[in-house]
Nucleic acid binder design. Structure first.
Lengths: 219, 219
DNA sequence: GGCCGAATCGAAACAGGATTCGATTTTAGA
DNA sequence: TCTAAAATCGAATCCTGTTTCGATTCGGCC
């Protein structure tokens, strides 16, 4: 035999999501092409018809997740809500996209940087894909910084506006993202709290951490 | 030749720390036995004289780091400081041990769970080390939970004592640890902030997030 | 001075996963 | 129908990293 009978052919899209899921479930290095293929009822070999190789597949997943996240955050950031309200929505969005799993959760996966770097050094020993890969990898990290910047800007704006107390925005932003990312590690469906509840706790916590003290405001 | 001439022989201890460092620098999966060996001027083969295999070496590093961290946190937790003061010190200790790198930083490495799990499933296909490995692995995770519990308890105590506002302690604790762990990903020596400064920001942030509102206290 | 265990090493054996390849089957059109 | 491109597959190949092995050195000690 050679090809699945009347089975519905999968496309890049399907593979991308399948990969995101497996990646989320097993972590990057523990995920094999076979695992991903199995998720869509294909053999590892077939994946190469859709993607250059494993690295590119991973990169595609990450890019996709990040793009979606950025799009949503930009929308919130562009609204005319107060900075506190914006931040609250951004946090909620971020946390829920992590608990709902999928791509964006993977996009921040820890260990991803050295991973991509290591892989690149190892294989692309100065050959073909090399260039495209490093280029896309840099672009990815740049966008990830941009993602972080969206949060930071709102934080900064809030501080300037006196909505938030004086804090070191860059560091607090990272603390925030770290807390959110970590959720992907411990959160489980069916646990004590739903994704939404976790999001509520986070929103509440961060806004409390940023709440301007009495010097300026009084509610 | 066969053995380093008059070179000082390394012992388990040396290898452990070397491994912790390489692990921190390259991330787990990107670290090879060769890398670790190189760090102490040995060949990969030599490491097997000191450790059963890679998994056990990793586990040893993690256990070590966790033990040290727990010991220090317990001491702080046992002191007679206020809960806020205790928490502040615990946060500072944790953050600085992450920025100063080393073992404990690795102990929390993200992705570590699926990793250990995957490795175990893969190799110990029902043979020799299998049992010892899974046992130690569980113990490790149990201790990691204990580590988390040390923070959570102080949080809880503070809430009960009215020192902190009402929050979902388990979730906030994890948010805290997540924020700290993430530091290991972005922190670099020589950056804008020193490890101590980062620690200060974290302490300030979390205490602010937990500060009891006017209902109860007034400073 | 010779013996033994500890510590090393180089080379070879293994393993597991990524990638390639040639063959095969579908599907859409001309 | 017939054909070419798309999508698959199984098997073979490659690579890289781990682990094993036998030989060799060191150091200390009787």
């Amino acid at each position: 035999m050679a090809r699945k009978p009347a089975d519905q052919t999968v496309d890049r899209e399907d593979i991308l999501w399948a990969a995101a899921e497996v990646l989320h479930r097993n972590g990057y290095e523990a995920t094999t092409m076979k695992d991903i293929a199995a998720q869509v009822n294909l053999t590892a070999a077939s994946l190469y018809h859709h993607f250059k190789n494993k690295d590119f597949l991973l990169l595609n997943v990450l890019e996709r997740g990040l793009d979606i996240g950025i799009a949503n955050l930009e929308e919130i950031a562009a609204s005319d809500l107060s900075n506190a309200a914006k931040l609250g929505r951004m946090i909620r969005y971020h946390v829920m996209s992590v608990t709902n799993n999928v791509a964006i959760g993977s996009a921040m996966i820890f260990e991803i940087r050295p991973l991509l770097k290591a892989n690149a050094d190892r294989r692309y020993g100065g050959d073909r894909f090399m260039e495209e890969f490093s280029e896309r990898r840099s672009r990815f990290f740049a966008r990830r910084d941009y993602f972080e910047g969206l949060f930071r800007n709102v934080l900064l704006a809030g501080v300037c506006a006196g909505e938030f107390r004086q804090v070191d925005a860059p560091t607090v932003t990272r603390a925030m993202l770290g807390a959110h990312n970590w959720i992907g590690i411990w959160y489980r469906d069916g646990g004590r709290l739903s994704g939404e509840e976790v999001a509520n706790v986070m929103v509440d916590t961060w806004l409390a951490a940023l709440r301007a003290t009495d010097e300026h405001n009084r509610e």
